[in-house]
Amino acid sequence: MSGNGNAAATAEENSPKMRVIRVGTRKSQLARIQTDSVVATLKASYPGLQFEIIAMSTTGDKILDTALSKIGEKSLFTKELEHALEKNEVDLVVHSLKDLPTVLPPGFTIGAICKRENPHDAVVFHPKFVGKTLETLPEKSVVGTSSLRRAAQLQRKFPHLEFRSIRGNLNTRLRKLDEQQEFSAIILATAGLQRMGWHNRVGQILHPEECMYAVGQGALGVEVRAKDQDILDLVGVLHDPETLLRCIAERAFLRHLEGGCSVPVAVHTAMKDGQLYLTGGVWSLDGSDSIQETMQATIHVPAQHEDGPEDDPQLVGITARNIPRGPQLAAQNLGISLANLLLSKGAKNILDVARQLNDAH
């Protein structure tokens, strides 16, 4: 009898209710805020589980004197976190989706994509230029951005401005803007500013005609071990179906173009009346040469937790077992079709030249 009692006690200790789920994140304040929001949602869904947040620095956090596009290494903000995932030191990792490459290392998958916040870019102005827009900034004003995508589009749109690289986390960039006289304004992701509670610093939100956004911008991705079915089931509740389908289309477009950090590629997606609209573009580094096109596809946005595919093969690095396969494939095909259209119009040449120029500098 006593033996059975011990077995029952052991089973209770090993039951999922007692389990601590370890969540990996970057150390920056924004990353911690984003991770806290994901953990809060998981806690609400699984009140019996405990969650421990483990923060670590990544290569991208450490190399702050070089433009991201020049470092010449993929997975700048993800490699150390993936290493911890691989060694079973954490069970899942919360990322900004735009930091996750469209091809993940073997053994990993994006197990959830959370509801997207505003994906557009924002302009934050130096205190002396508050009330201005990019259009009304004085001639030769210097605007800071760490992104080739932003610089290429904005140089084309605002030729009277000069664009220079600015690195560091959000706090560091804002301090550089406010305390030094080098920059009249800087460009940042609206979602990051909003998550930090800095709505009052948003001086201008850039519309798609001015600057399309990065693939996955404004959404959070939760990376897990691809074979860890328990954790895949656990994080599945975080999937937002519309965000998922938009981001599958965007990531398929980028992957098929073979774009990345070192080339200016941008997108804009919208879901309306059962249609998914995808606009994508590529630019030369100075913005003088560009190709942009829009395509659409009829896609039914499923309700969360309709029964999805059981075999769960990944699409552009994403596993969404609780979302039907048909809409996911339709979104992926839309991204591939748009990429093929741009490639047929000469996108590869623009991107190759951009890559060579970026590598040469």
Rank of each mutant, 00 (worst) to 15 (best):
V94L: 08
G281D: 01
L42T: 04
T269G: 01
E179L: 09
G326V: 10
F125A: 05
T269C: 15
L234C: 11
Q204P: 08
T279D: 04
Q356M: 01
I113F: 01
T145P: 01
S290I: 15
T172F: 09
V235Y: 04
L220F: 06
V215R: 04
W198A: 13
G280W: 01
K79P: 08
L81M: 08
G335Q: 05
P119G: 05
V267W: 01
S337T: 14
F51H: 09
G216H: 01
V130F: 08
D65R: 12
Y277P: 01
M212G: 14
A320V: 10
V124A: 12
L100C: 15
P138T: 10
I291N: 09
Q180R: 13
P105C: 05
G346R: 11
D121T: 01
K27C: 12
A331N: 01
P127M: 03
L206E: 01
V38E: 04
L174M: 14
L285R: 10
E209F: 15
V143E: 04
G335T: 04
V316T: 03
I33A: 14
I336M: 05
H300V: 14
Q181T: 13
E82I: 01
K43L: 08
D99T: 01
K272C: 06
S288G: 13
P264W: 03
A84S: 09
D99H: 07
T102P: 10
K43G: 09
V124N: 04
A151P: 04
I113W: 05
L232V: 14
Q181E: 14
R26V: 01
A226C: 12
L245S: 01
G60E: 01
L285W: 08
G259F: 11
A331E: 04
Q29G: 14
G259V: 05
E310W: 03
A152T: 13
S165R: 09
N340E: 01
G192S: 12
L193H: 04
C261N: 01
K27I: 10
C114E: 01
G24L: 09
Y46H: 13
G192L: 01
K70P: 08
L64Y: 14
P138E: 12
I187F: 09
L351V: 05
V143L: 11
K74S: 06
V353M: 14
S165G: 13
A249E: 03
R156D: 07
E89H: 08
A297W: 11
F125Q: 15
Q275L: 01
E117M: 06
R32Y: 14
H126D: 09
G218F: 01
N349Y: 06
T279G: 09
D178V: 10
V124W: 05
I71C: 09
R116M: 03
L206N: 01
Q328G: 09
G168Q: 01
S45W: 10
L285K: 09
R173G: 01
G131T: 08
L232Q: 01
H126I: 15
W198T: 06
L97R: 01
P309C: 04
